[in-house]
Each structure stands twice: as C-alpha cells, then as structure tokens.
C-alpha cells in the first residue's frame, strides 16, 4: 500500500505529475486553490493503485506532493 498527499495550496495545475504516473491515477480536479489554479488530485477510489514510485513528486516543480509507502516487514 502506498499513497500520495497533495499540498493543494502550492499546486499550479501544470499536470506534469499526471504525465509520469505509471498508473494514470492523477487528474485535474475542478477545485481552485487560493492561487487560482485547478489542483491535481488522486480520487479516493484510485489511491489503492498508487505504487509509491515517487515519479509525480520528482517532476513536480512546486513541492506539492508527499509520497508514503507501507513499511516493509522485517524478514
């Protein structure tokens, strides 16, 4: 299980994140943030597909995205 968290107030809606997501789960919402941009989001029902690959966060120019992954169990 992995998930991403968007700091929406920083998002400028450039959507570069959506171009690199291997699961194509990032889309542009209809919500505007205080800067006046329509922010990127992952719909709740799509989040389970997130692999935590960090691609979206790496290409985001605005430090919007935090990525979490489930801790691996000690073997």
């Amino acid at each position: 299980m992995a998930r991403v968290e968007f700091r929406e107030e920083r998002c400028k809606g450039c959507m570069l994140c959506s171009t690199v997501c291997p699961k194509k789960i990032i889309c542009q919402s209809s919500r505007f943030n205080q800067q006046g941009y329509k922010v990127a989001e992952v719909k709740a029902e799509d989040m389970e597909n997130c692999t935590g690959c960090t691609s979206c966060a790496l290409i985001c120019p605005d430090l919007v995205i935090k990525v979490y992954r489930e801790e691996k169990k000690e073997k």
């Binding site: 299980m1 992995a2 998930r3 800067q35 960090t54 966060a57 290409i59 120019p61 995205i65 979490y68």
Partner: peptide, 29 residues
C-alpha cells in the same frame, strides 16, 4: 499498518510557494 514518508521537500527549501509560472522547471532545479 505503519507507513513511512518516502518523498518530501528537503528542509533546506523554504516553505513558501514559488513565483514561478505553472510548469516552469526552476522549481525542480
């Protein structure tokens, strides 16, 4: 389930939105 943060802004980055335009790569650089 315990999770860990695997990507976050480095502490050296001052926490404020940049003045750069959407899609400008200065933020990445």
């Amino acid at each position: 389930m315990s999770e860990k943060l695997v990507f976050d802004a480095p502490e050296i980055m001052i926490d404020r939105p940049t003045h750069y335009c959407p899609g400008c790569h200065h933020g990445v650089a």
